[in-house]
Every structure is written in C-alpha cells, then in structure tokens.
C-alpha cells in the first residue's frame, strides 16, 4: 500500500475545550475502498473527530492528512470540502426553502470557482444531477421543496448533495437515525452502491446492526482514544468493548 491509498491519516490528534480533553493523542487511518464504522458511547469523541476532520473544530496538536498529501492544519471548511471531504450531519442539513433539484445544483456548483458557479448548467452537469437523484431515489421529487420531504428522504438528499460533487471521502454522521427498517435497508444499499476503490466512507452510528451490515471494519472510540479496531465480529467479542458498553448500559438502567 502506498500513502496514496490513504484517504485519511490522523496522527497524534489532540482536541480540547478549555481544560476538558475530548480527543487524546488519537492516531487513525482510513483507506480508499474501505467503509469504516466509528462507534462508541456518547461523549467518546465521535462527532468531535468529524468536526476536526472537516475544519469545524480547531485541534491543538497532531496532523490530519487527506488523500495522502494534503495536511489540513490551517484550512477552513470550504477548502477542506474542496479536497473531497463531504460530510453529512447528524441533523439533516439541507436547504429547506429550495427545491430538491436546486439543492443538488448548489452542491454540484459549490466545489467550483465562483465565476464558474454563475454560468448556466451544462448538459453534462444536468445529467449528473439526474443520475444522482435516481441513485438516492428522489428522481420523482426534483421539483419539490426540500423542506416538504420525509425525514428519510432528507437524509438521502443530504447524501446525494455530497456525492453529486464527486467526493473522495464521505463522512456520514448517523445516516440512519430516525429511519424505519425499510429506509435503513435502502440506506445500506445506497452505501454499498457508493463503495468503490476511489472512495472511502466513514459511518458514525449507534445502530450496531447497520454498522455490521455496511462496514468493512470498525473503530471503537472511548474517552477520546481508540479502544479497539478491526472487523465487527472481532470487535463484538472484545471484552473491553463489552465492558465499556455494558458499563454504559448499567448506568443507563
């Protein structure tokens, strides 16, 4: 493997808010072609990790290298996104007042230079939007206001907005939260379809079954550090993981 197979390489990452340390000397690797699950109890630092990756949160020390060559230390959110990191948020984050088509159009144009984004869409771009709409199952709703979509459809639209811009890495924060069984299956199928040698996908989820279905390997975060890493089967039987989750459960009970 060369370093160009590395979609995301994190080394020695520290993030803290005031005196409270959220990520502690974290090192982590995601390769292209991989679907990586990130699990862990609340407060383990999952969302903070995504925040650090996408430039939402500043990190104190450590390095994050994207696609084997881009260190994103001082880059802002748009610059990081243009490196090919697309992020879906925990709460569906779409432009409710715009139509589905306009949502996808904006996503398509976003990664480009300002001047290019003022032109009319080229036929090629039109085609790209339509294909994406079919992929996420919203080709019938292109003219609808995005705000009127069902919750699951909003999640898919958000994923669609990421893939229309040809990302290298997809970061999905709780992609099936609030979805019913059928919608989960559809989402899993969508992720399977997206999977490819040019793409790395990171899924942060609480739903273990979903993670087991879609992910090739899983990282368990606990208390800002990596507890275990490996295929879901192995992780499930790891005593430490069981302790962490059971301990959590008994607290909740």
């Amino acid at each position: 493997m060369t370093k160009f197979d590395q979609a995301i390489y994190v080394s020695g990452l520290n993030v803290s808010f005031g005196a409270f340390s959220v990520l502690k000397n974290l090192s982590w690797l995601v390769n292209f072609g991989e679907v990586k699950g990130v699990i862990g109890p609340n407060g383990a630092g999952k969302t903070t990790l995504l925040d650090a990756l996408t430039g939402k949160t500043e990190y104190q020390t450590g390095d994050i290298v994207v696609r084997g060559r881009h260190n994103i230390k001082d880059a802002n959110e748009p610059a990081i996104a243009r490196l090919g990191l697309g992020r879906k948020f925990q709460k569906p984050s779409i432009f409710s007042g715009l139509s589905v088509f306009e949502n996808l159009e904006i996503a398509l144009r976003s990664g480009k230079a300002i001047l290019q984004s003022i032109n009319q869409l080229s036929p090629h771009e039109q085609k790209k939007i339509n294909e994406t709409a079919i992929l996420i199952g919203l080709s019938d709703c292109l003219g609808k206001d995005a705000g009127t979509l069902a919750h699951g459809q909003k999640q898919w639209l958000e994923i669609g907005m990421l893939i229309v811009a040809n990302p290298a890495v997809l970061l999905l924060d709780e992609p099936v939260a609030g979805m019913n069984g059928e919608e989960r299956t559809k989402t899993a199928a969508l992720i399977d379809k997206l999977k490819g040698p040019e793409m790395a996908i990171v899924v942060v989820e609480h739903d273990m079954q979903f993670v087991e279905t879609v992910c090739d390997s899983v990282t368990v975060l606990h208390d800002g550090q990596i507890l275990v890493e490996g295929p879901m089967q192995a992780v499930k039987s790891n005593q430490q993981v069981i302790d962490v989750y059971l301990g959590r459960d008994s607290e909740n009970a």
């Binding site: 808010f17 005031g18 969302t47 903070t48």
Partner: peptide, 9 residues
C-alpha cells in the same frame, strides 16, 4: 464570539 466566551462545542 467575544473576548471572554469559552470555545465550546
């Protein structure tokens, strides 16, 4: 966020 606001998530 102003001089004194702590940076929080």
């Amino acid at each position: 966020e102003g001089i004194f606001t702590m940076k929080v998530r």
